[in-house]
Simulated assay, not measured.
Amino acid sequence: MESAVFNLIEDLDQSTTNWKIKARVTRMWTSVSSENGSVKGYNVILLDDDNNHVHAFAYPNIWNGFKTPVIEGGVYVFDQFSVKDVVGNLKPVQADIRIRFSQYTTVTAVEDDGMIPAYKFEFLDLGDLFTEANKYQPQQQPEFAIDVIGVIEDFEPLTKLDTKFGMRDIVKFRICDSSNQHKVSVWRDLVVLANNIYTKELQSPVIAIITSTKVTTFMNTVQIGTLPSSKLYLNLDDESVTDMRMRLKEEGYLSKREKYLKAAKSEFVQTFMERMTLKDLNEKLTYDDLKKRIYTTFSVVKVDEDVAWFRIMVFAEDDTFSCNVMLMDRAARRIVGTSAIKAYNDFEKV
């Protein structure tokens, strides 16, 4: 049985290097020197069929020595490697160990039988980010990086920002759900990808998954930043995105544009659809009223015989007042469903 051949990620420890796992590479990135930009190492996240994942690392000479090229999304058998305690902050996955590939490690590509999921995320709800970020002092780093999911709003295309490290490319947007919204700044190599994949053709609302983010607070608001280990997925074909869409629908989420249109429609109804009597129209009409859409109801008592093709003058009355009312042809068509001249002719036949 395959379960007897391969070890599970949850069983790995430092007792031996004689480990053999079958896993999918769900994410990849390089560690780069901040001094000269040289590659310091290669990183992968490995996920097994028991839905456990772990961070693995290889120095450049080890990575380049693999006979089988390793690509993101591929399934491989990794044999002979060491296991180390995970150290440092902003760890990409919540595991206590990390794999270290060595010169004895072999990598073999195997058929993808669909038993290993394509992705695994460890989301923190957007509503919990502020509390999480406030756990740490300004100079402290969280133990783990955070995966987030939400709707993209206010996307700002690639621009340059003057930072203490010099001019750097940046893409900014907000990530939202029905109750929360936070600012996101995308940095480094992820900038170009974000700028290219966010298009108007994407299904709306555009749901983003951002892995391995650094969350801080500034002026009492949450700031989400990306790291070298961060990945950005838009409208990913994943159960988490499907669940998010259902949640948004159930909670009545509206995009920024939809909220604007709803507010405008509400204001239009409240401000422009006001009923007035003929007496009010005659005696109380103000300049502000001219900006509104006003309606009234009345009975037509008489039609002026001096009619033009584009208008009709009627003598109207309601319970409060009697007066002349001019119906332009367009108004006549809208109100009585016919032209002014036809309305006049029909009235004469009565």
Rank of each mutant, 00 (worst) to 15 (best):
A118L: 12
V44T: 07
F310A: 10
A331R: 08
D125A: 13
S230M: 04
S31A: 11
V206I: 12
M244V: 01
D96G: 12
F101H: 10
Y287K: 12
M219V: 14
V269T: 11
Q80F: 09
L254K: 10
V32R: 03
V75Y: 04
Q139T: 12
E143Q: 13
N345K: 12
A133H: 09
L234C: 02
T226K: 06
T338N: 13
K262R: 15
N52P: 10
I335S: 06
Y136W: 11
P138I: 14
N282H: 05
K259T: 06
A58R: 07
R275S: 12
S34F: 07
A340K: 09
Q223H: 11
T217L: 06
V336T: 06
L327E: 01
I210P: 03
I294H: 04
S179L: 14
T105N: 13
F347Y: 15
N43A: 07
R98H: 13
N134M: 12
K262C: 08
Q137A: 15
K249S: 15
L254Y: 06
M115C: 15
L281I: 08
A332N: 11
R257P: 01
K91F: 03
C323T: 03
V241W: 01
S82R: 14
I224F: 07
M328S: 10
Q223L: 10
L281D: 04
A340M: 12
H53A: 04
I62A: 02
Q203Y: 02
V222R: 01
T271E: 08
P228E: 05
T338D: 11
S82A: 15
Y198R: 08
T211D: 02
F347P: 01
N43F: 01
Y42A: 03
N195A: 10
R330C: 09
V70C: 01
E72R: 02
D96M: 13
M276L: 11
H53D: 13
K91D: 04
M244W: 00
V186K: 03
V93L: 09
D154T: 13
I21R: 00
